[in-house]
Design a protein around this nucleic acid. Sequence first.
DNA 1: CTTTGATTTAAACAAGTGTTTAAAATAAAA
DNA 2: TTTTATTTTAAACACTTGTTTAAATCAAAG
Lengths: 205, 205
Amino acid sequence: MTTELSTEEKIKRAARQVFMEKGYAGATTREIAEVAGINIALTNYYFRSKDKLFDLVYGEAFQDLFRIIISVLNSELPLRDKIGQLIDEDVDFLLKNPDLPKFVMTQGYLNNENFFGMLTAKRDAFLNSKFVVQVVQAQAQGQVRNINPIELMLTIVSNVQFFFMAKPIVSRITQMDEAQYRHFVLQHKQMVKDMLYQYLFLQPE
Amino acid sequence: MTTELSTEEKIKRAARQVFMEKGYAGATTREIAEVAGINIALTNYYFRSKDKLFDLVYGEAFQDLFRIIISVLNSELPLRDKIGQLIDEDVDFLLKNPDLPKFVMTQGYLNNENFFGMLTAKRDAFLNSKFVVQVVQAQAQGQVRNINPIELMLTIVSNVQFFFMAKPIVSRITQMDEAQYRHFVLQHKQMVKDMLYQYLFLQPE
DNA sequence: CTTTGATTTAAACAAGTGTTTAAAATAAAA
DNA sequence: TTTTATTTTAAACACTTGTTTAAATCAAAG
């Protein structure tokens, strides 16, 4: 039924799966080839080396992780809605890609030049985002509590992403299965919004 | 000046350093031996294998990460002070051990039996902690907002630990050096407390 | 000093690693 | 079909891995 993928695409997908599960050092080209269902030599035929293949996979994962957040940060929404949207979209995205934050944060230091390059490229998108401007403006008008906009941004993200990074531990301790954990995270969205709104906005709308 | 450590202790410390930096797969016994300044064969003379050495290091890291939190959870403090203490002590501890959460959370699945065993052993300490009892009681008396005590616990921890796990990314984007980041995290403590108190406690004291 | 046991060493082992090679199979072009 | 280029394969390469061995060094006891 599914249309046959090109060999190149099969390798890339297998590489993403194995790298995400085992990390760079723990992954082997042989396992990637096995998952992809192709001969070992083809990984080096299509991509030049394990390093190059990893850089490709990591780069895409890195972009994926920040794309949605940055897009919402710079959207036209008013601040209150924007914070809600940040939480909603981040949760929805991570439900589909639960291992992404762990992968990006733990594997970044390996290919240093690349990693730091990607980060500095993203700097402006965060520091000069419309979100930061909105927060500063609202603070000047006394509508919003006076906290560092970047700290606020991180607080929003931390309340979402941590629940995915800690999932193996939490789901085990609380004995939640996949569906229950999903429900738990979805319900947590509202709590985070309530908490942030109440703390942040000085004048109730 | 420093008293000479035993060979066994030198290996264990070197192993902790290398395992934390590179992970299990990325670490080699030769690098551990080099860091410890001893012959390769000694790692297997004192510990039986790389696996056994890793299990030892991981087990201690695991205990370290939860010891303080569990101790505060079950202390005699009133709820409000307890939440403050959780945040204070977690930050202080992580300032001394910044790589611990990342290590415990990402390397746990490797030695599965051990990991899950340690988790189930900790289950009661969390689920039946004095903290949970206090929250439920305060909720019954209408003093505290009606949220899942475990979710509250996780929210507290997430607002602290995430700032350490994301440190490589955040410090690079914001161009903060070590001292600045330390100041940033210390200041963040108060913000987390304010936010949680305001959200959680229905009657101002 | 001699002897016994523990500790340390250099060297090697087998297995697994990323990568390459040269031939085979397939597809495309003539 | 014949020729050419592309893709795939099995096998091997050089190297690193965790681990072991047997000898050397050291410390303590007799």
